[in-house]
Design a protein around this nucleic acid. Structure first.
Length: 937
RNA sequence: GCGCGGGUGCCGGAGCGGUCAAACGGGCUAGGCUUAGGACCUAGUAGCUUAGUGCUUACGCAGGUUCAAAUCCUGUCCCGCGCACCA
């Protein structure tokens, strides 16, 4: 049996030696495909493989369509994960050491990874090895890696940022970050000991002015809309509040809030303290309403959240149940000097309508959840969450909300926020969505940094250009378009620099390093020259050189071969197809569009983007902890390259998560070599007969080429494999049932077609077959099969179905009446008038589907009237189904006569064929077009 | 909560107004080939019924449009992914 691994390395060597995948500029039409360079902090796995294979299969397909195809590959090292991992290794952190051991490194090797550079030295060659042994048709001359460790690329990224800056797309601005006050750095997700995924969220502080005083009580909230229904202010009766001076105002806040003011707003000066007691029972005036509200004690306030003071709107179940508890037990308040009459009267002010809920929203929820006391914390929280969900989703502001009346809560909230800030009634603050603890074990806070660099994806003009580009490019699959449109509109300013990490320094402010998603947006242009620019001494490279090559701008620099670089770029650009996982839509792929339209003229904008789902293994998420983590090298080692490629691409298409099916891969190891043996054994063997079966077989081959090609065009590779492999073999089997020996020309066409259609998926074995059939060329460079529309004859398929149906029916009947070897079988073709009837009915059905109308129409026709009764039974059935392709009696008769011999062979009986008009058998009148009557005796 | 995609047999998945009990693949059952097979071949794989082309039920759930709906519309439930400064 064929040794897959042997032939794989053989053909990989041949391709390399013959430079099969090293395209040069030519007169041919070009096609430029690429895959986002993977981050080099480990071996590539099967998830990479699937996404890569979509590029690879498409590249091979386009190459066979006689495009000059460029498929390069580089490596990404920008960012902090490698630095962090190296740091952890240096610190001997057990988790990281474990990860390295899992990858198969010995203790002494692991030590080397304490140096970030070693990762870049080690992984790219290893990954390249994997891709080579998987048979990828990559032009490796253009390989490179990122960061300033590659000075040529580094200059390119500097150029890119200078261009963005020139256009004012890079700006300096404020930004809330998760911050460690001890380490004085940003606490990124991977350097947290707690709170991964938590982010800053808006938490606005509203000013409540104390009556007859210059003090302002600050109350934090996420629901500024509820201010319209404010009833009172809650303060912690046990607390001592601070009075701080902020921008000439005197704010009253909790102790915990002072740091927040410092980090997020202005440096506060503490000018005094005030006990809760002194505030209680006083009146304050909040924004948006014209009444004063009362200050009331609350025991449930968490001083860590917000400002330490909360305002209450009693449409909230939490506030409502708390106030009810107080109202039911006024003794609690004895020790405070409060006007109990005021407190007794506190009740909700309805401001929000929700369909199917009454006015008193809080009470509705309390009733629904059967809450009896504020002590039932879980229930109360649940009730609040449900209500908030409904408010946000379905709520509208009631008529008493003045300018906000009638708005949805969602919209009103945003507007109120703006109005409050504009009128100096509130200040924007941020709160963490959850607790975050730094690796140094210090709880994190939020800090507003003010000298952060951003790429301004919020720029409206820029968005317009990006939309413009998106509208014109092809998406694979098309259904991802909505998501892209959404992301383009949603993107705001993107912090594009870091204080640490590998990468390129920001050219005009070198304390910053360009962040990894920002340095990787237009580098596909660099592939077009990467193999040549290496030869140019680094100090000769500056922005003018890139301006000249990429933008055809400025004076030609005096550099050897500069024209060649320019020609390479102008020939290969733009990108025709770039493919990645669907998770990159919301950042990388959209950045890719934005940055292209910012820097390049329209002719160099991207032409096509592909996205796909996430690979699962035997239906389960792939993960190291589940033990089903498969690297590319594992897969190839276990199953060979071709089997892995075939299995992976057969696993799914479009946005579905492709499934790596281990049992399918196992079967393929057995099956794929059959393709080779079959092809070699059968090639050039057969007859010159060309009759009915041949005609059908040829029709079907052409049909499959057509369908496969259509699927390839849409990058629906799973469908293509189904057609080119499974359908192709089915069609051949059916053909062979009908003939002793195949037609020589057709079997050759079949074999050639099949291996060509499959070669983008299983290039090694098809290359081997192609060679063993006596070809000296490479199948990888052959032309994609073309179909001949004229050879596709659907009537043949219909005839085929007709015969198959009759065989099935006869077998079924034989079974029923338990006659195994009938003497003879009579097939009675339907009467002529029924064909005419069917045709007429089909025509009438264009106009109406009403049975009685159709019958009436039919009865006007003489030749049908005599069959009135029969027709009236037939019509209801006919109009239920779509009329089939209607043959004539002659055609149907001919089909059966042609196939008589075949039927006799197949059914091992004598076959008689007659038409209903001449038949004496009772069953004759049961016959219908396409459904002859059968008589077995 | 927002956006996008999806919910079909034992499973993966086609179908996206009529030709659908549901392509193709896997699994399972029976039989054949065979020294053996994870190879290959044949048949079966919703139920009932029957000298076949018939009936009933099915395409998350509930309604609607239509002569006709898995396919269109409305509502609803559930699942996946993303929601950022990070690869």
């Amino acid at each position: 049996m064929l040794n897959l691994r042997e032939i794989e390395s053989k053909w990989q060597k041949e391709w390399e030696e013959n430079k099969v995948f090293q395209p040069e500029i030519s007169k041919k039409k070009k096609y430029f495909v690429n895959f986002p360079y993977p981050y080099v902090n480990g071996y590539m796995h099967i998830g990479h493989l699937y996404t890569l294979l979509r590029v690879e299969a498409f590249a091979r397909y386009k190459r066979m369509q006689d495009f000059n195809v460029l498929y390069p590959q580089g490596w990404h090292a920008t960012g902090s994960p490698i630095i962090n991992a190296a740091q952890r290794i240096a610190e001997n952190e057990p988790k990281q050491i474990h990860i390295m051991k899992e990858m198969g490194f010995s203790d002494s090797e692991i030590k080397k990874f304490a140096d970030p550079k070693y990762w870049i030295k080690y992984f790219p060659p290893e990954n390249k090895k994997d891709l080579k042994s998987a048979g990828f048709s990559i032009d490796w001359r253009r390989e490179f890696f990122t960061t300033d460790l590659n000075p040529h690329y580094d200059k390119f990224v500097r150029w890119q940022f200078n261009k963005l800056k020139e256009k004012n797309y890079v700006i300096k601005s404020k930004f809330p970050v998760v911050w460690c006050p001890k380490d004085n750095t940003i606490v990124q997700d991977h350097s947290r000991s707690e709170g991964e995924g938590e982010t800053p969220k808006d938490f606005i502080w509203v000013k409540f002015r104390l009556k007859e005083s210059d003090l302002i009580l600050m109350a934090g909230t996420t629901r500024p809309d509820a201010l319209l229904g404010q009833t009172h202010l809650w303060i912690d009766p046990e607390a001592t509040y601070k009075i701080v001076k902020v921008k000439n105002e005197k704010w009253v806040v909790g102790q915990e809030a002072i740091q927040k003011i410092q980090e997020q707003y202005e440096k506060p000066t503490i000018i005094g303290e005030i006990k809760a007691n002194e505030l209680m029972g006083k009146w304050v005036k909040g924004p948006l309403v014209d009444y004063d509200i009362y200050i009331v004690p609350a025991w449930f306030i968490d001083a860590k959240i917000g400002s330490g003071i909360v305002y209450s709107a009693l449409e909230d179940p939490v506030d409502l149940i708390e106030i009810q508890d107080i109202q039911n037990d006024l003794k609690k308040l004895d020790k405070y000097k409060l006007d109990l009459e005021v407190i007794k009267k506190l009740k909700p002010i309805p401001i929000i309508s929700i369909p199917e809920l009454g006015d008193n929203l809080g009470q509705e929820m309390i009733n629904k959840y059967k809450i009896k006391s504020a002590k039932e914390k879980d229930k109360v929280k649940e009730a609040k969450d449900e209500l908030n969900k409904n408010i946000y989703r379905k709520g509208t502001m009631k008529q008493n909300c003045e300018k906000y009346a009638g708005m949805s809560v969602e919209i009103a909230q945003e507007l109120i926020k703006k109005d409050l800030i504009a009128s100096n009634n509130a200040v924007m603050f941020y709160e963490l969505t959850g607790k975050v603890v730094c690796r140094c074990l210090t709880p994190s806070i939020i800090k507003i940094v003010s000298d952060q660099w951003f790429i301004d994806y919020g720029n409206k003009e820029w968005k317009k250009l990006a939309h413009n580009c998106l509208d014109k490019l092809g998406l694979y699959p098309e259904k991802a378009r909505q998501q892209f449109n959404y992301v383009i509109d949603w993107l705001k300013q993107w912090a594009c620099t870091h204080e640490e990490g590998l990468g390129t320094k920001l050219p005009w402010d070198e304390k910053w390093v360009i962040e990894s998603l920002s340095d990787s947006t237009i580098y596909m242009a660099y592939y077009t020259i990467s193999h040549l620019i290496k030869e140019i001494p680094i100090d000769e490279i500056d922005d003018r050189l890139f301006d000249y090559i990429f933008l055809n701008k400025g004076k030609k620099p005096k550099i050897k071969n500069i024209e060649t670089l320019k020609e390479e770029f102008e020939y290969w650009y733009p990108v025709d197809f770039r493919n990645s996982g669907k998770d990159l839509i919301q950042n990388h792929l959209t950045f890719f569009i934005f940055n292209h339209v910012a820097i390049f003229p329209e002719k160099h904008w991207p032409k096509g983007i592909g996205v796909n789902g996430w690979t699962v293994v035997d239906g389960q998420k792939m993960s190291k902890s589940l033990g089903n983590f498969i690297t590319i090298r594992d897969a190839i080692k276990k199953y060979s390259a071709d089997v892995s490629r075939f299995t992976m691409l057969n696993g799914g298409e479009e946005l579905d998560d492709p499934n790596w099916d281990n049992s399918f891969a196992s079967t393929l190891i057995q099956r794929l070599p059959n393709l080779h043996d079959f092809s070699i054994e059968n090639y050039n063997k057969g007859t010159n007969n060309y009759e009915n079966p041949e005609e059908l077989f040829e029709s079907q081959i052409n049909q499959i080429i057509k369908e496969t090609t259509e699927a390839m065009e849409l990058t629906k590779f799973r469908t293509a494999i189904q057609k080119a492999y499974f359908d192709m073999q089915k069609v051949f089997k059916n053909y062979m049932k009908k003939v002793e020996k195949p037609n020589k020309k057709l079997i050759n066409q079949y074999i050639n077609t099949q291996i060509k259609l499959l070669s983008p998926f299983i290039p090694h074995i098809t290359e081997e077959i192609w060679h063993n059939l006596g070809n000296k060329s490479f199948i990888s460079l052959q032309s994609w099969p073309k179909y001949d529309e004229k050879k596709i004859n659907l009537e043949l398929e219909i005839a085929e179905n007709l015969i198959n149906n009759i065989i099935e029916d006869i077998k079924y009947v034989k079974n029923l009446i338990k006659i195994e070897n009938p003497k003879e079988i009579t097939i009675i073709i339907s009467s002529k008038w029924k064909y005419e009837l069917f045709a007429k009915v089909k025509e009438l059905m264009e106009k109406t589907r009403n049975a009685s109308e159709i019958i009436k129409e039919l009865m006007k026709i003489d030749k049908f009237r005599q069959y009135g009764q029969e027709i009236s039974k037939l019509i209801p059935k006919l109009i239920q189904g779509q009329p089939e392709f209607i043959l004539s009696q002659e055609k149907e008769l001919k089909i059966f006569n042609d196939k008589k011999e075949f039927l006799e062979k197949e059914l091992k009986s004598k076959i008689l064929i007659e038409i209903a008009e001449k038949s004496k058998d009772q069953k004759a009148k049961n016959s219908l077009p396409f459904k002859p009557a059968i008589v077995i005796s």
